[in-house]
Every structure is written in structure tokens, then in C-alpha cells.
Simulated scan of single mutants.
Amino acid sequence: MQETGLGRVKVRVPAKINLALKVGALAEDGFHPIGTVFHAVSLYDDIEARSADEITVELRGEGAETLPRDEANLAVKAAQLLRESYGVDAGALMSVLKTIPVAGGMAGGSADAAAALLACAMLWDLDTQPQDLHELASQLGSDVPFALIGGTARGTGRGTELVPMISRGSYHWVLAMARDGLGTPQVYRRFDEMHAAGELEPSTEIPTELMNSLATGDVAGVGGALVNDLQAPAISLRPELGSVLDHGRDFGVLGAVLSGSGPTCAFLVRSEEVAMDLAGHLKTHPAVWSVRRAVGPVPGARPVS
């Protein structure tokens, strides 16, 4: 890592959408194997790390007041893991400015953990390679390694085994945040109940149509192949999510999918102009409290001046 010489480092990290999220049956280790296609989009959190005696975090932005500031915060946990792994006798004050929705299914906490790994590695002038940070990220959560690399990537296992994918073209997204979050464990429990009842069939197979469409830059093909196995369980818990998705489909989008375990609904459209019109349309739905526009794919965690 390069020497900054400034006593502070700022890192920007993107949110993610799952273009595909295929979920296997509950395994003996208590986890569900997944097959997913991660896609980084232009909603960002910024972390500035400054030299300090201890590892602490300050949080600003929408929803920041709901987040922990102790070891339960993934950014703090990431910095502590890095310090322990490299035997560092130093701390960091991390100031986080959040614009990624909190508890929105867009991996904001995981993004902050990835940014903390990179920022503190630079701040402490550690001799780390990308694979070193990836291995630490894998210990922190399923979405953390992808936040380091960004772009578009296929994830398997718990989502930490990544292969960057060929992805041509630019993708315009409108993101509708429904009121009140959904806990990921709650949605997975509902997935298991629906599996036991024969209402869905677990599978980690990513649609071939999606892979081919990404490789050729067929944006409409990507929209038609979006899939999320957690969508039906989430809608069964929160029927208004299905209503929001239908509200966007009525506008004539290329594709609509729940992001992760929700409650953010992601809509793929042809252009920035259409995105602006759709954003206005979605704001009329009573279950929607905020609408954002974004493009993808974008790079993962990066230092910024």
C-alpha cells in the first residue's frame, strides 16, 4: 500500500444489486448456498479514516442514527480484524457518510466494512495485496468481498467466492425504497417454510439468459432475466413490496426485482430520461418513502482525494 503521509485516508464504496439471487436448500452448517450475480451501482458511502489511539466510528447521513457505533458495526469489526491480523499498534477514527439506504438490501453495512479494510490498510501503511483483503472480507460477511472489487461478478458458496464477469453496456436503475426494513434472517426463514410447503424449489443455478445478455450488452435481455429467490418470501411477509414492483412494471420497465432480501425494489430502464420519469411515477405509491437513480456497473472501494 502506498504511504499517504497525511494521517487520513478517504475511501468511496458502492451499493450493490443482485441481478440474480438463486438460493439453495438450508445446509447442515446452517447457511444457504447461493448463486448470485452482483452488480455495483452509483450509490456510495464515504469513509474517512484518521490516525487515532483507538478504533471508533462516527456516522452521518440518512438512517445513520439507527446504526451501532460499537463492535456490532461492521466497519469497526473490519478495522479490528485488520489490526489483529497484522499486529498493528494503532487505531483509527472512521467518519462514515452514508447515502446507501440503511437496511435496504443493498449491502450498505458490507460496503462500509470493505471501505474500512482498504482505508485502514492505507492509513497504517500495511503491505497488503487484493487477495489479502478479500480473505479478511470473507470473514466479515457474504457481500463484503464484492464491495472491494465492484463491477459485475458471479458469486457462489456464501457469495464470497467471486469471478468477475464480462458485462458490456451501461445500466440505468431506479430504486424505490419501501417503508420499514426486512430482516434477512426473517426472509430466509420464510424461504425455508415455503420450500417445506412445496411452494418453491431451491436452486443455485444462474439463468443462462442473464449471463449471455450481460456478455453481449443486451440490456433488455438482462431486464427480462432478473431473478431473486427471496422475492416471493419477502412479498409474502410484506405484500406491499409486490404492489411497488407492479407499480413500476405498469410504467413499462425492462425489468423489476427486489434487491437482496428487500425492501428496496430495483427497476431497469433504457435511459436516464426514462429513469427520471419513472422516479416521479414511483413516488406516487404510498408504500414508497424514497426514490433514487443510479447507473452500473461501477468500480468497488476506491481511495478518493
Rank of each mutant, 00 (worst) to 15 (best):
T4Y: 10
P14T: 09
P14K: 11
A15V: 08
L21A: 10
V23G: 05
V23S: 05
E28M: 04
G30L: 08
F38G: 02
E48K: 06
L59H: 13
E62C: 07
G63P: 13
A64I: 07
E71P: 02
A72V: 00
N73K: 08
K77M: 12
K77A: 15
A78H: 06
A78M: 08
E84Q: 14
L97A: 15
K98V: 10
T99P: 01
P101T: 14
G104K: 15
G104H: 13
G108S: 03
G108L: 01
G108A: 00
A111D: 07
D112E: 10
L117Y: 02
L117W: 03
L118T: 07
A119D: 11
L126F: 07
T128V: 15
Q131G: 01
Q131K: 15
L133G: 08
H134Q: 13
L136G: 07
A137F: 01
A137R: 06
I149E: 08
G151D: 11
T152L: 01
G155L: 05
G157P: 06
R158M: 04
T160A: 02
T160C: 00
I166Q: 13
G169M: 02
G169L: 01
V174E: 12
L175P: 09
A176D: 01
R179I: 14
T184M: 10
P185Q: 10
E193I: 06
A196G: 07
E199Q: 11
E201H: 07
P202F: 06
P202K: 09
P207L: 04
P207N: 04
E209W: 00
M211P: 00
S213P: 03
L214N: 01
G217T: 03
D218P: 09
V219D: 02
V219N: 05
G221Q: 09
A225K: 08
V227K: 08
N228D: 09
P233F: 05
L237T: 13
L241E: 05
S243E: 15
R249W: 10
R249V: 02
L254W: 06
V257L: 14
L258Q: 01
L258P: 00
S259N: 09
S261D: 05
G262P: 09
R270T: 15
E272F: 04
G280C: 11
K283E: 14
T284I: 01
V288H: 10
V295W: 00
P299Y: 12
R302M: 15
